[in-house]
Structures are given as C-alpha cells and as structure tokens.
Design a protein around this nucleic acid. Sequence first.
DNA 1: AACCAACGTTGGCTTGTCCAACATAGCAGG
DNA 2: CCTGCTATGTTGGACAAGCCAACGTTGGTT
Lengths: 152, 152
Amino acid sequence: MADMDHALQPPARLRGLASWQASKVSTLGARLTARRMPLGARADFAVLAALEEYGALSQAEIGRRLGLDRNDVSGILNRLEDCRRVDRQADPANRRRNVVTLTAAGRRHLEQLQQHADAVQAELLAGLDTAEQRQLQALLAKLLDSHKPQPA
Amino acid sequence: MADMDHALQPPARLRGLASWQASKVSTLGARLTARRMPLGARADFAVLAALEEYGALSQAEIGRRLGLDRNDVSGILNRLEDCRRVDRQADPANRRRNVVTLTAAGRRHLEQLQQHADAVQAELLAGLDTAEQRQLQALLAKLLDSHKPQPA
DNA sequence: AACCAACGTTGGCTTGTCCAACATAGCAGG
DNA sequence: CCTGCTATGTTGGACAAGCCAACGTTGGTT
C-alpha cells in the first residue's frame, strides 16, 4: 500500500518545481471548468468581466488587461457578438478603434459564468482550508504582479 | 500614473480566481522556459526525471506518475530514443510492456535541463522572498495531492 | 475456449498561446 | 504638404498540451 502510494508520486525534481506545479494546477482547473461550462467560456468570462468592471473598452485595451493577443481578442469578440453579448462599434473619436460594450444579455451571461466559476474554484481548492486558500491566492497574485510588464 | 496602473489591472473577478491565476502563472513559466530550453524539453525533463528517480519504468507507469496520457508518453519516448537518451525494450516478463531505461546520455541531458529549470524557477519566483516561495510551493503541492485520484 | 483488461501505437481534435502580414487610421517630422 | 512611424483590427497559420477513439497485441479470468 505504502509502496503503491510511493509508486504513484511524481518525481521529486518536479514536485518542487513551481512552473510544473502551476501547469498541473492549470490543467486541473481546465478539466473542472470543462465539466460545467459551455465551450470556450473561459475566455468569454474574462472579456465580459473586464467590460463589466471597466465599462467600454477598445479591443487592444481588453487584450492588455487580460494578457491576451489582439488576434485572440478578435476571435472571442466575434463569438460574443454573434450571441449579442457585446456590442462592437467604430469609435467616432478614433476610427482605428472599436468600442466594445457589454449588453444586457452579456451581463446576464457573465453572472451565469460567475456561478460556474465559483463552483470550480471551490472544487479546485477543496483540499485547502480557508486560510490556505487566501494565502495561495495572495501569493499567486503577488507573483503575477511582479511580472506585469512582460505579458503582451 | 496611478490611473494608468489601475487601467492595466485585470478585473477583480479574475484576480482572485485561482484557476485563472494558475493558468497565467503556467503560461508565464512556459514563456520563460521557451527562452532557455530546446524545443519540447519540458516533457523530456519530466520523463527523464521520473526514470532517474524510479529506475526502469513501463510507459504506462511513466504516464501515471506524470499525469500524462499513454499517447503522449509514446511520442516523447520516440524523441528521446532517437537521441539515445532512453532505451526501450520489450519486457521479457510481460510482453505487453516496454521497459524504459535511462542511458548515460539521458542522465547528462537531464542534468543540463535541471540547470535550465532552476534558472527558470528563480526567474519565475523572483518577486517573492524565500519564505513566500516555499509557502507557494507547499500550497501548490498540497492542492495537487488533494486531487491525486483524478488525473489520467 | 471465451471474455475482459491492460499496454503501446497511430491518428486526429480542441484550446491556448504566439507570430507574420496586411490595410487602415492617427501622429510626428521634415 | 508629404513622409515615415506607430497603433489598431483582421486574417492566416504555426505550435505545444491535453484529450479521445480505434486498433492489434498480450495477459489474466472465468
């Protein structure tokens, strides 16, 4: 038994490697998310959340805030616009830009996704007590802040 | 200034979402890794580390310990075998299995990759002090342990 | 003998991340 | 004015990771 437990452990060289750990936690989160959310909902959630918090944004601003490429923002907005969850119009003040706005349907969809996200969050962090969960979130946030300039 | 800082922040709905944070940290680690390591070296490192720590393994065991699919293990081993970094032979005791062994070249390559991994690790965690780094690693390890049964 | 489970392989599909090229629009210099 | 330079949005494709399906082989069970 103890032998089998030991046999299933990942090697020590990986157990303490933060980039490997983060990758595994990330795919774990992706699996849990996939069970509850419709297809491609993760990116949608991020974009809708940005619009809800900051109001109208250009696509480039969305990308900068979320760490996404312009290209991918474009595709996500196509999906969202098809479902009438965002409104995309040329900015009269700067015709290079598109002003993206959250619609009522988009706001409703955001709240739905938020519930799924909360459920996934609880499931993912179930093995940690409340204090540990907050610690983990704080440490990850600090780590990400320290790398802010880099993302595209 | 403070305005612009605020403008670049991701929305609050995401900042505290562990699955989103982990995903971002993961891609950050991938970016840092890609700058130093040859192509496809992350999976190679994991497999070589497993062989170094546990000795000869079957492909299925490698997959279980690393949370990888059999399919992907197969491909990784093709790469490693082409470079003579592992040896793959049918198990005489159970002809379904392949016994995978680390070669001297594989061991050398592992140590090289370990150095790169250490550098990436340091860069990734640079924004945290030593105590915070250990805390983060411990919390991630505990989280992963709590989900052990699930991975394929 | 017949059935089922495990193993390794091939092939393909989906996400997420990223890069290159293009056309348009604003801006700065002369 | 005209000439670059930058920013923006779009299209297309490359690439790694993760996953699933199917197949043939082998081992174990009944």
